[in-house]
Amino acid sequence: MRLLTTAITLFGVAVIVFFVIRVVPGNPIAMMLPPGATEADVARLTALYGLDKSIPAQFLIWLGGVLQGDFGTSITARQPVLALVLGRLPATLELSVMALLMAIVLGGMAALLGTLRRGGRTEAAIDIGNGMALSVPDFLWGLVLILGLGVFWPVFHISGRITPSLDLPFVTNFYLFESLVRLRFDLLVDIVGHMILPALALAIPLAAIIGQLLKQSLKETMHLDYVTLSRTKGYSETHVILREALPNAILPTLTLVGVQFTFLIGGTVIIERLFSYEGLGNMAIDAVINRDLPLIQGIVILFAVIFTGVNLLVDLTYAALNPRLRHG
């Protein structure tokens, strides 16, 4: 059932993208040819890429290829789309997951501290901080971080994924993960130094959402009877919050984090551009500028696969955390 709905979703996404990018003005062939190319050159190249056929016919050809694992060839890079896209995917995945973890840690700490000091000045300060973090979009946070921690006080890298002069022993494109596994901490530090600002820019708004929602549900849970009973057992307030209140309060936040994480992945498109980070998002912008139709399609489909995967993961986690759901 789940697989079927996923397949239909992906098909829908494919149809929409395919038609929209062909209706939007702009011609990839015109951009490829040097000035002074003849009409005949244009026609020849158009036919070569199959762009002379009707849009539904092009779609069927493309779909037939996809079902066999062939996503076509990038017009600008002249390489298979699948290889290009999968080559960039690890960079974006690592950035998104790092941003997600940072958002969870930052937001979780804000929620915890706010609950512990509820009703006081600390909570008011946290509310103000959350409000500010939320009302500024991620790319503006990116600029703020570049200026603050990249230019005025240059502690972190603001461009790229890794210092290019370094000798890379990696066999996969999961640089962060592989440097960890290989215990190459020199490389790890360099990679994290490159990732931390874009990840933080993506994480700040999400951290604010997590902090605000989780604090709200924690506060509602704090005066329930089982929390009070735990206090009489001799536990500290922090322990009471973490063990008694958190497992019950976290469920609404978890659902929201799933939805927001997909927005965060969408946010990588601009943030990667801003930080010249060689991920999918950066590639997507180039693809759109160059009207590289097969590449755009490939990237969008991959994003759609990631989104549905995230949603599935959230549902599974939700069931694992809520015993009442597990039995129902």
Binding site: Y226, L229, R231, T232, L321, P323
Partner: peptide, 24 residues
């Protein structure tokens, strides 16, 4: 104070339906 109370005293609460943590 909490540790002293936890070691020497205990509560039988009013409502058994809400006094146990549903997720433990």
């Amino acid at each position: 104070r909490r540790r002293v109370i936890g070691a020497k005293a205990a509560l039988i609460p009013q409502d058994p339906l809400t006094a146990l943590n549903p997720s433990r």
